[in-house]
Design a protein around this nucleic acid. Structure first.
Lengths: 187, 187
DNA sequence: GTCTATAGCTAGATAGAC
DNA sequence: GTCTATCTAGCTATAGAC
């Protein structure tokens, strides 16, 4: 019998880590089992659809994270617009560990099961882009330009993460994040 | 017996396609065999180190491609600087099929074998970045700013490819490519 | 240099005890 | 709800004929 209970949030976090570090095909049931501390049969009990269910579940959690830590912060927090943006960007920096961690969205957006994940992945990018656009508009930028600049900000995050890890230089990511307020017309 | 000879260039291209579409772990020997038309034992004859050798070989070809189609074009072609940049950007657009195709560098930069590929992948990004910087400097931009802008251009290419495929909208990639001359101080 | 055949292993997935 | 034990299919890789 298990002496320590397995907390669901810990399981979610570990599953996310394995998918993010190894990709969908690289994340074997064995790795997922070792990381969570749950035997394979237990994982299948929680996720009857197997790996695909686990990855879909992880992505739904990521979507929720972006809603809470980016969208809600920018739309509903009682702070000046530049501080709401800073708070969201800080959360994003922490999520990606200043450029040291891969993006789960990207890691799961190019595998054989991607069609099952595509909608949630696109939703995450849309949340991010719409939130950035809201900041720019609130600061006086014209709406269609704001949408363009917001998409550029999302592109900068993804692109700089790719390069940071390929070049082993987290400054690339950090510089890109630091440039987003200016890109959106702030400061 | 084989009626048609297997041309090495075709094998290289097919190997690249499978790794680019499925990633390293998703590219099974069976898929690689079917795509090239060579049986598994024949692939091992050509690449004694197996999949790792194949991926490393593919990446060396990609590096050569960037040297010939970007670096050499920008450094040695007898054309005005803006036309050399346009030519290189057109080659890049074709390489990624206007945003419809994944980037092999990115697909191979996050798997268990990545340490063996890291140097070549970083070299490709460096070639691209240095070439863009050269364009900007040639056009009068101060050198350290040129380096920053060139890196932004590479980030835009990678990031827009990620987003284009996640959002199923090739315009994202095409718009990013179209913005690179301006980013580097041209037009 | 390409093939057929197969070894040896690990993958994802399930049965059934507790 | 977690476990041990196990199945089958697929994987990487090799042996040896032609």
């Amino acid at each position: 019998m298990a002496v320590t209970k397995v907390v669901p949030e810990d399981v979610d976090r570990k599953l996310s880590e394995v998918f993010t570090n190894f990709g969908y095909d690289g994340a074997s049931m064995e790795l997922l089992s070792q990381a969570t501390g749950l035997k394979k049969a237990s994982l299948y009990h929680r996720f009857p659809g197997g790996k695909r269910d686990m990855a879909a579940h992880v992505l739904k959690k990521v979507e929720l994270w972006f809603q809470q830590n980016v969208q809600d912060v920018i739309e509903h927090e009682n702070l000046p617009v530049e501080e709401r943006l800073e708070k969201a960007l800080l959360a994003i920096s922490n999520l990606f560990e200043d450029g040291a961690k891969n993006c789960s969205l990207r890691m799961l957006s190019a595998c054989s099961e991607t069609p099952y994940f595509q909608e949630t992945i696109a939703s995450c990018f849309t949340i991010l882009s719409n939130s950035f656009a809201k900041v720019a508009v609130e600061n006086g930028m014209e709406e269609s330009l704001a949408k363009t600049k917001a998409q550029e900000a999302v592109i900068n995050i993804q692109g700089s993460l790719v390069l940071s890890r390929a070049m082993k230089d987290n400054n690339i990511f950090q510089t890109s994040i630091a440039g987003i307020p200016h890109l959106l017309g702030l400061s």
